[in-house]
Amino acid sequence: MKTGIRQAILLTTLAVILGLATNTLTETGIPFFGNWPSLAGSDSIIVPPSADEGDPPFISLDEAAAKFQTPGILFIDARDPEDYEYGHIKGAISIPYDYLEDINDPRVTSVPKDQGMVIYCSGTECESSLYLGRDFQYKGYTEVSIFFGGWREWNEAGLPVEQDI
């Protein structure tokens, strides 16, 4: 058993060294300490580790709720249509990222360029909101923000939702 433990420690050390070294040396590297909230408080901003510097701003649940109260802000649901129908943030429109042919899809281009928008998807388990946000940004939209806490955080907080069924 002693041998086993000594070997296990050696193997673990090797894994730690290789893991951290690879992360430092490769392009897919992520920060060693992520920006994941331990106890998702409503004022903490959840940022996915795949986020890049130039990405649209990520907003917290509190900020999303504030924007919800602001007239003229468009909420965009990036999830699949069936998820949207089952329940979405009140007043949100559906632009399902996985169903878009390309970024010239009329559902994207029909939105005015200076439209203030909050894009969300399921929550931290999906990245459609990030990808759709990047597409909008790429097309020259300036008022894009991403609510990465998404449907899950919004719904759990008991904020206004609606169904399309």
Partner: peptide, 18 residues
């Protein structure tokens, strides 16, 4: 939250090496 990324970096290497 602080340990999530470290776990994601080290655990797969543990699997590979072991």
């Amino acid at each position: 939250g602080e340990l999530v990324n470290l776990a994601a970096l080290i655990m797969p290497w543990m699997e590979l090496i072991c």
